[in-house]
Design a protein around this nucleic acid. Structure first.
Lengths: 122, 122
DNA sequence: CAGTATCCGTGTCGATACTG
DNA sequence: CAGTATCGACACGGATACTG
């Protein structure tokens, strides 16, 4: 019987991994935030997302969504009309990932004091 | 009574956040991986870490550990001897974060088939 | 062994302008 | 409204060489 820690290590083995790939996929500037903004079960339009994130540029939202769609975490639905309307929502896969990322945010709040204490002042 | 989703959104408000900061701090190439390699309760030397990660360069391991130490997630202990010996381990804060990142890896394994199906072939 | 300094290529990201 | 294209800045990250 393998120990838990060893199993994780195995999943991170570059010759085996899905873990490495996922960590990589989540490790760009906007991906996790966009996933959070899509929420668990909501359908959101491009412009809504941009508005709710605020600082993200048009281009980065587009490429982030495209990557998420390409990796099967997000579904994209186009309504053939003028002006166009496009809706995004988490796929089943994305929906199963969502709670894990949400936990990171909740964790950061539970430990806010300690985090802020060590946070470099800009 | 606020709804859960709204609470998360609040934690991500740039004017409030600790969430944004944490997501940012985790979103570089090596941070999450190094945290995982430190495991929950182990003490590891610089060279051990480099060996277990393999592909990471000496420089990136050094800067990643430095950032982790600066943000209070990792503790560094120096033994004043020649040749020097330095040990790293997760702080209490880091130890409380560890399971959340581990879950991402475990999630990636549970959904390996679906992830691989959408993974772009190099 | 652990760590810093330097140099430099590349990818990421943002601003802007343009299409359907 | 929802994209794509192009350009350029700059931070990230890798190789190498050097110190204590």
């Amino acid at each position: 019987m393998e120990k838990k820690a060893d199993i994780v290590e195995k999943y991170l083995d570059p010759d085996y991994c899905p873990g490495r790939y996922i960590l990589e996929r989540l490790s760009d500037k906007w991906t996790m935030l966009v996933i959070l903004m899509l929420k668990e079960n909501e359908v959101r339009r491009f412009s809504e997302l941009q508005k709710s994130i605020g600082e993200i540029s048009h281009k980065m939202l587009a490429t982030t969504l495209k990557k998420l769609e390409a990796s099967g975490l997000v579904e994209r639905k186009v309504y053939p009309q003028v002006p166009p309307k496009v809706e995004y929502r988490l796929s089943n896969l994305g929906r199963s990932l969502f709670p894990l990322i949400k936990q990171l945010v909740e964790w950061s709040h539970e430990n806010k004091a300690e985090i802020e204490a060590n946070r470099p002042k800009v």
